[in-house]
Every structure is written in structure tokens, then in C-alpha cells.
Simulated scan of single mutants.
Amino acid sequence: MLEGCESRWADTGPARAPRISYRMNDAATLLAEPGTLAVFGFGSGVADSDDPRWLRVPLETFDAPAPLEAWQVDGQVQHGRHGALRWSAGGGWLFAALELDEREYGGPAGAARFAYAQLRDFIRSRDEQNVLRIWNYQGAINRGDGDSERYKLFCDGRAEGCGDWFAHGYPAATAIGHHGDANLLQVYLLAGVHAGTAVENPRQVSAWRYPRQYGRTSPGFARAMRLPAQDVLAISGTAAVVGHASAHEGDTAAQLDEILVNLESLLASAGMPAGFDTHAPLKAYVRHGADVPRVREKLRQHLPGVPVLLLHGDVCRSELLVELDGWRYL
């Protein structure tokens, strides 16, 4: 990952990682708590806020009432806006987010190019220069054929906007299609003063080495990232991909089983204990609402007690029906 610049953090060790949790509080209560770096609400029904630390994610939940997601750090948090970009920082950690209307940038590629160039330039002006985790939520992600599929155009634009930003290694990431405004692209990230350790899954080809059949531009992300203090694993969007191929086409239950195997392989590769617990918040992105009961039941059986937020989202390959991401704390 990119090295942090010389700063007041240069001689200190990595700070304790942000605590990520799902909370049944209102946004105002969470934003008022000391050390709140960011708060996320999901779907069209959540109230809005002018606080730059608040972000409404355009993914509807399958549970009601749905919790909010809170990121909390040690230390005082500052926040503000930089043009269209919102940010907050504290304790050696940084949250930054952009929401764009693709029509204003010529489509998916242009919007992704602008978003990543803006985030790149902003991060390079900060002490927190090591990008650890990125989320990308794109409307109608699978619309279009061949190289004109919207996700593939997004990948083209992302690479152009990044330039050499991730020349020394990719962050963990998720890319999911939302069912809100088809022209809305939302990108947000977590960065820190210190670099993390990228982790790959030996069961899967690294995403940046995918063959040409998946588009002109391979997706640029690591399968996971151990945060600088090495006590937390940020897990990228994980689907039923073995090698580079999609597995179990049309079978949601089998895909979910494959995902769980991939997650255990990833934990082992990262040197983390097997399994997940009540402090390991996950998200499950489900393409078809009819599949939610079986997904929920299988997760209850295999991940008892693990907090899982079920969201209506499309995986970046149209044949994939479910995807998981999240956090694993030691």
C-alpha cells in the first residue's frame, strides 16, 4: 500500500482499529457519541442528515426495523466537505465518500473516473494516505452486454481515475448494484495513517489477474485487508467464485455454501481464527427477494449469533445470486 507521509503520526504505532457495529439507535444519537467516524443508514426509508459523517446507502434492507451501521474510533473526530466529497477523520483514521449522478459525467466510466480521481487527490492531501477498504454501489450494475455492461464500464473508469494510486497494492473492496436511481454512483472508503496487509484467497485467482472474458479492465481489489494493528480483517465482497469462474449457476443455496468455504479459506490465509462470532458484522447482498428466507436460515445455521445485515443488491456478475462481506475481529 502507499506509504503515509511524514506527520505527527509518523513515530506512533497503529491505532486501535475502528469498531464496526450494527445499532438500533437513531442517527442523531450515534453521531453525538464520542469517536463516531461515520454512520450509515440503508434504503429509502431512513431520515437524512446534513452531518458529513452520515451516509444513506441506496440498498434496501430485508429486515424491519433495520439497524444503522456505526464506525467508531479512539480520539476526537473532525469532519467537513471538500466540494462534493464528504469526510471525517480521527484517531489516525479517515472516512471519505462521494455520490455522483452518472449523467453529469458521460455515463458509468466517466463517473467512476471522476470519483476515483477526486478521492485520490483528496487522500494524497491527508495524513491518512493508506486506503484500506472501499465500497462501490452502482445502479443497474449488470445492464448492457459484453464490454458495454455497466459494471465493466465502471471498472474501466475506476482504473483511469486511479492512475498509479494503487501501484503498490490494492485495497479490499465491494462492488454491488443497488435498485435506487439507476444513475447514482456511491463510493466511500476507509483510510488510515498506517498501511495494512492485503490478503488473497488461495481458492481464487486474484481479481486483477482475471482473464479478458471479464472485461477490458480487471477489477482492482484485494480479497481482504488486515488493518494496521493486525487485529481486524476487512473482508471484500465474496461470491461463489472458484479460480476465476462463477460456481453453481442458478443455485442460491449452493452459492452460499461456496461463499462460506471461501470465507474460511480467506481467514486461514490471513492467519485469523476460523469462524465468525457476535463481534463480526457481515452484510449479505441478495439478488432476488424470494431467496431471502433460505439465505437467512442457512446463515443462522452456519453463523449462529453473527450479526448479518440482509440487503437487496445485485452481484457484479449476473449469474451470481448472493455475496457476503464484512469484518472479522480477533
Rank of each mutant, 00 (worst) to 15 (best):
R103E: 11
A28C: 03
H168A: 14
G139H: 05
F166M: 08
R143L: 13
T278M: 04
Y137C: 10
Q76L: 12
W135M: 07
G4S: 12
G139W: 06
S148P: 00
Y105S: 05
H279M: 08
G91R: 08
E69V: 07
V241L: 14
L303C: 07
N201A: 03
H244K: 10
N262H: 03
T12C: 10
T217Q: 14
R226N: 02
A112D: 09
A109P: 08
R216S: 11
V292N: 02
N136L: 05
Y329R: 11
G305I: 04
N183G: 11
L190W: 13
L263R: 06
C162K: 13
N130V: 11
R216E: 10
C5A: 13
Q78A: 15
R300A: 14
V39I: 10
V242D: 14
L263M: 04
F114L: 12
W135Y: 11
A167P: 00
W71I: 07
A38G: 09
R19Q: 01
G146H: 04
D156W: 06
R19C: 00
R203F: 00
A198Y: 00
F154A: 03
A10I: 13
V241N: 11
E104T: 10
A172G: 15
R287L: 09
R124A: 13
S7Q: 09
A247I: 11
A140H: 10
N130Y: 00
E160A: 15
G83L: 04
H244G: 12
R124S: 11
R86G: 07
E99R: 14
A96W: 05
T197K: 13
E297I: 03
H288I: 03
L324D: 03
L132T: 01
R150N: 10
E160G: 07
V286D: 05
V193H: 04
M272Y: 03
G91M: 06
R8Q: 13
V205Y: 02
F42P: 12
A66I: 08
G163H: 09
L153F: 07
P307K: 12
I123S: 08
Q301Y: 01
T36H: 05
A117I: 04
R296A: 12
L85V: 01
V73G: 06
F95K: 04
A117W: 10
N142Q: 15
G90W: 09
G157Q: 12
G41L: 05
G83H: 08
A96P: 04
A284P: 05
A15W: 03
L37I: 03
L320A: 01
V306A: 09
L310N: 05
V46M: 08
L153G: 07
L190P: 02
D164N: 15
R133Y: 15
T278H: 09
T238C: 14
A32S: 15
L309V: 00
S236A: 15
L233R: 00
A115F: 02
R53G: 08
H79C: 15
L185E: 13
Q204N: 08
